[in-house]
Design a protein around this nucleic acid. Structure first.
Length: 125
DNA sequence: ACAGTGACAACAT
DNA sequence: TATGTTGCCACTG
């Protein structure tokens, strides 16, 4: 039987769940890991959708705050509370966040998963 | 079926 | 540096 491939959203969540505390990744890198280097925008869209599912245990404990933009900057716009919340969550696990809401990717960037692990995620294993 | 919507990213001013 | 523009793409009603 062929394992059904999870939706892109599900694949994004699977990756984000594996970002270790104290590190960060970017929308674009996650998209690239999933083999879709130009679907970064959809990664942000997937994380945004979490706020509608936060009552569902299946989507609890997804460390969405460990995802920033390609410049290492917190990217939530028009939502000051969420933006500050992301900064606080990161600081709480030891990530330095500048007053301009930027993280030094040279220090905190998560290297990412091995391609074998990614293959499992993409194929729903 | 299809137009609208973003927590992006690269490039141009 | 700081904005603005353009291309992208999965998902939604």
């Amino acid at each position: 039987m062929t394992n059904k491939s999870p939706s892109y959203f599900e694949q994004v969540y699977a990756i984000v769940r594996k970002i270790p505390p104290g590190t960060v990744s970017s929308y674009g890198r996650i998209a690239a890991m999933l083999g879709r280097p130009r679907a970064a925008r959809a990664v942000g869209y997937a994380l945004n959708a979490l706020k509608d599912k936060h009552g569902d245990p299946q989507y609890a404990n997804i460390p969405w705050h460990r995802v920033v933009n390609s410049q290492g900057r917190i990217s939530i716009v028009n939502r000051e509370t969420s933006r500050n919340q992301q900064a606080e969550l990161l600081k709480a696990e030891g990530v330095q966040v500048t007053d301009r809401l930027t993280i030094d990717l040279d220090i905190y960037l998560w290297p990412g998963l091995h391609w074998l692990e990614i293959d499992d995620i993409v194929h729903g294993r």
